[in-house]
């Protein structure tokens, strides 16, 4: 099925007041008899930074995959910039300004850092018939790839095959793959996973330096990173949304402390599932 994302964008933009960047309306996901996400409703405006928290098995990644188009909800609707994306495949999302990262690194290991960043941009613009003959050395995209790589301290590794990079460098590139598309809605699934302290600090800086109009949805077990970046926090437990508030409110919420941080936690350094 050919899907024209430009038409989708126009459709979304032509409905009067600017629509929310992301709207979830009563989203439920059920695998057989198991309810993983239960009637979750959520709205994210332009430039909002939202951390999605919850213990392991709470349904965070499933909900994330519903937004990204990798999982189709059993019930409910997903709208991105006013466009109903519930039934649309994941490949339509980049055209609507969505970029995502994965909990487990998913990079093209046989290609260089530069080629990975190039492909991220090519995917957003679409492969046209002329792509068969035009050389891959495409100045503007190559320059942008280089700029992002340098920002993530990967500038000297542009020609290196991704499979040769260290885990920390691959996690950085995972973020870079999303940033290089200049997204409106950035979905990050545990970006700090497996990073050293220094790398986590650099990640936090990168996220704080995002342009103000970029909307961010972040799943993160590292509270230090999550609380530093987010201006709103929602907490999922057993598939349901149990809290929606500011980072300072989440620290003092007794229910969240009980099911998520643990009563003795709350020092800002606890990690979920621990």
């Amino acid at each position: 099925m050919a899907i024209d994302t430009e038409t989708l964008r126009d459709h979304g933009a032509g409905s009067g007041t600017p629509p929310a960047v992301l709207e979830l309306d009563g989203v439920s996901v059920q695998f057989g008899g198991l309810v993983v996400v239960s009637a979750v409703g959520l709205e994210l405006g332009r430039g909002e930074r939202l951390a999605l928290l919850g213990p392991n098995g709470a349904g965070k990644t499933t909900m994330f995959n519903v937004i990204a188009g990798d999982v189709r909800p059993t019930r409910g609707r997903v709208r991105i910039r006013g466009v109903d994306c519930t039934e649309l495949p994941s490949r339509v999302r980049p055209g609507l300004g969505v970029a995502r990262t994965y909990q487990r690194t998913r990079l093209m290991a046989g290609l260089s850092v530069q080629d990975n960043l190039y492909l991220a941009q090519l995917g957003k613009s679409g492969v046209r018939h002329r792509s068969l003959v035009r050389r891959a050395i495409d100045g503007e995209r190559r320059d942008r790839a280089q700029a992002i790589a340098e920002r993530l301290a990967l500038g000297h590794e542009l020609g290196t095959a991704v499979g040769e990079l260290s885990h920390g460098q691959q996690r950085q590139l995972e973020i870079g793959m999303a940033l290089v598309t200049e997204p409106d809605l950035l979905l990050l699934d545990e970006p700090a996973s497996g990073l050293s302290r220094g790398e986590r600090e650099r990640l936090t800086e990168t996220l704080l330096e995002l342009p103000a109009d970029v909307t961010l949805l972040l799943i993160e077990h590292d509270m230090e990173v999550a609380m530093a970046v987010a201006d709103r926090v929602v907490v999922l437990a057993q598939g349901g949304l149990i809290f929606n508030g500011t980072p300072s409110e989440v620290r003092s919420d007794p229910l969240v402390q009980e099911i998520y941080l643990g009563r003795s936690g709350g020092d800002g350094r606890a990690t979920a599932g621990s």
Binding site: R93, P94, G95, Y102, L107, D115, Y118, G123
Partner: peptide, 17 residues
């Protein structure tokens, strides 16, 4: 390049568009 990307990570390539 896109084809080689599909070889390495088809799921990622789909999410890239």
């Amino acid at each position: 390049l896109a084809l080689q990307g599909v070889r390495d990570e088809p799921i990622r390539m789909a999410s890239l568009g």
